[in-house]
Write a protein that binds this DNA or RNA. Structure first.
Lengths: 329, 329
DNA sequence: TTGTACGCGTTATCAG
DNA sequence: CTGATAACGCGTACAA
């Protein structure tokens, strides 16, 4: 590796001067600066991040802990976060936990040893003992979407409970009386909040709902889940999906069962992913501002890294009317 | 920061001993080992990755350069790669270039300064001068999907040209005679190869095709592209989408134009993303083994990092018959 | 088996 | 304006 000392020798200057040129700090004569820059170009020199970190204590890296990248929701979130960090000269260290507590713990050890300047986490952990280690090390943390139970860290997330209410509200307004809530993944607190919100709103209208949740959040699993409740005689006229994927599965199940959507049965989703428009008929859904969640989380974290306090604007939900909901016949 | 020296003092041992305990190297008496481990636990010590890297020269990090994470194709690829690296004790440093040559160059400087042990790249660059810098620094590189022009690095990718031929072949076999190839992004070499393969196969059958490509690869853009060629009197009876997203857009355009799929018009896609099953009717497509591409790329890179040579198995394409193709009427 | 001392590449401090 | 030097945390010859 060519080091700052090689540059100094080559340019006939001292290491101090070279450092000054690189970091634009202190005074350097134009002539010296030129010689040093020449040397840097000639020898294709790149400063060592490790050495810098060792001196400064700061790595300019941020840990981004997510359950996955291969599902659109987290893919989009990761993308926004990565871009937003890059824009600020920060490097994302993306960690896919695969919903495994064990791996999440390993990742946290790694983030600690990398001396990341901050952490953004959509955690799957029940207790936050692992994250406590980061807190103890003085690393700022911001929770995304899912909370970090027992830790007093800020959380950037949409109001999932309200989202559940909005889904129910829309179908109620259309005149539906027989509901089912279906979807996955059942272990996800945001999903649970949505279910709770929907059930609560229905209860306020004096109505109950069949709730069917599963562990797996793929298309097939969700379709099977929905298919299971479409057989009985007293089948629901309205299906509330916990997510867009769940709702898309439900639409397929309904059509597969010979029902017409939305005339025989209405379906609503949550998220408003690009995918929601791929189904035919296109999915009615409650949109959460996913990209804004990423942006705000980064803004919040960066503020905390600078020791500042900021208040973020609300993250509004929005009903997106498309073609899978209609009054019952 | 608590360092190896603090542990030594606390445990009443030397730094050497502590280092040996941490790295499981050399002889340490059971009693000493226990005291040291105790100390590490008590003081919540984590070895500094920077200091290690500085000594060893190896960072155990791998740069992963991708155009984006918010499109399913690259989201899935990134996921597989990240998991596969983690399994081998390597940390992925994911870099989203947003299809910008400028940012890609910045990322490469960063990877150089981080002293990554290897790089996996799906590059957007026309020339590979930037990657030459990595080569010069002795960093192993493996190209994924897209090639690195002018560089003699291994590339892990499906045979896109053949994929194009397979799409044409299937529709030809069904009896179609009037074709259009539509989709995006036109600047992507794999997409170009697919188009070329399809056109070539059609030419072999003595047939031409209308080719309509656009720069933007989102659903709306692709749907608009397809809608544009559905209006004339002599409209095609078969649409070849450059990707699944393009094909999904085409299905929507066709249905929006009052056509029935597959009876009035057939549509075929490429990739076999989960999304291809969301449309109704479900999309017929040519599957590329996306996850296997990620796995093989990592295997190849790791081999190169170890100075080994390996030969990878083929990456077979597969026609997936679903509901958007049928003989013309 | 254990301990001492040095060097990895930077930057901050202080002296010139 | 420029230069010498110490220090960051770790691993490893070498010495004991």
């Amino acid at each position: 590796m060519t080091s700052i000392r090689d540059i100094a020798k080559y340019a006939g200057a001292s290491v101090t001067t070279v450092s000054r040129v690189i970091n634009n700090s202190g005074y350097v004569s134009a002539a010296t600066r030129f010689r040093v820059e020449q040397a840097i170009a000639d020898l294709a020199f790149t400063p060592s991040a490790s050495a810098r970190r060792m001196r400064s204590g700061s790595s300019r890296m941020v840990g981004v802990v997510l359950p996955a990248l291969d599902v659109p929701f987290f893919g989009i979130l990761a993308h926004v976060i990565e871009r937003e960090l890059f824009r600020r000269g920060l490097q994302a260290l993306i960690c896919c936990t695969d919903e495994s507590a064990d791996q999440e713990a390993q990742y946290i050890s790694m983030l600690l040893s990398q001396q990341v300047d901050g952490v953004l986490a959509a955690s799957v952990l029940e207790d936050s003992a692992q994250y406590q280690r980061l807190v103890d090390a003085g690393v700022p943390i911001v929770a995304i979407d899912r909370a970090l139970p027992g830790l007093s860290v800020k959380r950037v997330a949409a109001d999932h409970h309200l989202g559940g209410r909005m889904m129910a509200e829309h179908l109620l307004g259309l005149g539906h009386r027989r509901f089912a809530v279906i979807g996955a993944p059942q272990h996800s607190p945001p999903v649970q909040a949505r279910v709770q919100g929907a059930v609560q709103r229905l209860a306020e209208a004096g109505l109950g709902a069949q709730v069917v949740l599963g562990p797996a959040h793929d298309f097939d699993a969700c379709r099977a889940l929905a298919a299971g409740i479409l057989t009985g005689g007293e089948r629901p006229t309205a299906l509330i999906g916990t997510t867009d994927i769940a709702a898309i599965g439900a639409v397929h199940a309904a059509i597969g069962a010979g029902l017409s959507v939305p005339w025989d049965i209405s379906v609503i989703g949550f998220d408003d992913l690009p995918e929601s428009r791929y189904v035919l008929p296109a999915l009615t859904t409650v949109a959460q501002p996913l990209r804004e969640i990423g942006t705000q989380a980064v803004a919040q974290l960066v503020a905390q890294m600078a020791g500042e306090e900021i208040t973020l604007p609300d993250l509004p939900l929005r009903l997106v009317l498309r073609d899978t909901t209609a009054p019952p016949c």
